[in-house]
Write a protein that binds this DNA or RNA. Structure first.
Lengths: 255, 255
DNA sequence: GAGTGGTCTAGACCACGCG
DNA sequence: GCGTGGTCTAGACCACTCA
């Protein structure tokens, strides 16, 4: 049946290489997600509906959705439906933040206290442009802020965002929103971060960082450089964080 | 059919809670893996054979194996079969080592040059015992070594292994084996590491570490504390590494 | 009780690897 | 050409949620 499929599905397969039907369906659902057909947190159509729309069996749709769920683009809830993933959910406060208090976890610790130091538009340097797939000199927004836990400043970070997608962002918006920053990005700018890559190093605190994080100059800090991506691997944020690791640690699970 | 299954499968379900058939099958295959019915790198029986053995359909076995493959316990190869995962494979040199050269990757860099500083049996401290789920004073093996890339010492690490499982391990074994240490553990001791947890911090190099890594005392280093587990979440290694991050970085992908 | 995702089956056919 | 895993289907039934 895969080769004799009518129009909708295999119209999407420009590669002669062979792509399973469920992959094509996955691609189509992905396009709808990208296009904003369903908003973050909303339910997507049921498996039966999608099967009817694409003229395939429920099992094929199921396998497509299975992969989307494995990629964290979508969340299944038995008896209720399948929902577009969002950063604005109770579950884990900060999905991409792997810094944990040495005792307890993110949940026991409560939300971070944010302090925005700076938020301004500027022209991107060559380095920032490369990370964000822009041209040097394109408009970017730079944000600098600290995050504190229980009164102790723990993270100092600098964000760069493409000026185009984040027109009109303000320090008040960055500071005022209650909840993850990425949830604010979804709500206010329609930008959904889906995946990220981090490069981690140990560095010595310079005078400025030391002051803001209330540690002696030269103290070892964790440097975390993150590039976050929306759909289709489009980079939408460069973030450089300095973490204190005297009361917290970066946790990672390998398998 | 799930409720009327004959002996083999639901003899394994002590929980009345409801466990899908394929989960029970997964558990049974896992037991065989654990028991060493098939050695690392070997093929396990085909889906049809397993389906016949367990008296379920091929689809159910498939779903069980899908999960084992997702957990990296097993590797599927179309047209050939399904194989027990091993650390002794070309693919990625060091599966659990996330340290990458700033330019290029593990493949371009070639294998690490190992130097074993120390390998001795001792009684475990309370801290080591806790991590390895032993009692304080139980026998453990401590290994200290450095890894260098292109002549530059980059990693200084200390390993603790349960003395029981690693009887008779020698410095020569640690140094002499060509390939990942975890592959040597599989071959020589039948211990297969399946999963690990890491806690990462930034620390200042003490005099000893600075000397061995050829950096000034007080230099920032990445401290990586790893607990590695075999099947059933049994901890089998505690490892504390210090990484230079002037030419390398710890890479992590989030989703 | 209706609707959703989750499980299980049986059978057909496809892509791949290897002799 | 055979055996392996991979895809696709259709239909039955189960577990969960909510009105």
């Amino acid at each position: 049946m895969a080769t004799t499929l009518p129009s909708p599905a295999d119209a999407e397969a420009p590669t002669p290489a062979f792509s399973p039907l469920y992959q094509q369906i996955k691609g189509l659902i992905l396009q709808s997600l990208q296009a904003g057909e369903w908003r973050p947190g909303e339910a997507i159509p049921s498996e039966m509906e999608l099967a009817a729309r694409f003229r395939v069996s429920q099992g094929t749709v199921r396998k497509a959705i299975d992969e989307l769920a494995a990629d964290n683009l979508v969340v299944r809830r038995q008896g209720k439906g399948t929902f577009v993933a969002t950063h604005a959910e109770r579950q884990v406060q900060y999905r991409f933040l792997k810094l944990m208090p040495d005792t307890g976890d993110q949940a026991t610790e409560g939300p971070a206290e944010r302090r925005v130091l700076d938020c301004r538009r500027m022209r991107s340097t060559a380095e920032v442009a490369r990370a964000l797939a822009l041209r040097s000199g394109d408009a970017v927004v730079q944000v600098r802020r600290t995050l504190a836990f229980g009164g102790t400043p723990t993270i100092l970070e600098e964000l760069w965002l493409p000026g185009n997608a984040f027109k009109g962002i303000t320090a008040e918006q960055m500071a005022g929103y209650h909840g993850p920053t990425y949830a604010m990005f979804e709500l206010e700018f329609g930008v959904r971060m889906v995946r990220a890559e981090e490069k981690i190093r140990a560095v010595a605190a310079d005078a400025a960082a030391a002051g803001l994080l209330q540690v002696p100059a030269g103290s070892p800090l964790l440097s975390v450089e993150r590039v976050a991506f929306t759909y289709n691997d489009v980079p939408m944020e460069l973030r450089r964080g300095l973490y204190r690791t005297d009361t917290h640690h970066y946790r990672n699970d390998l398998s």
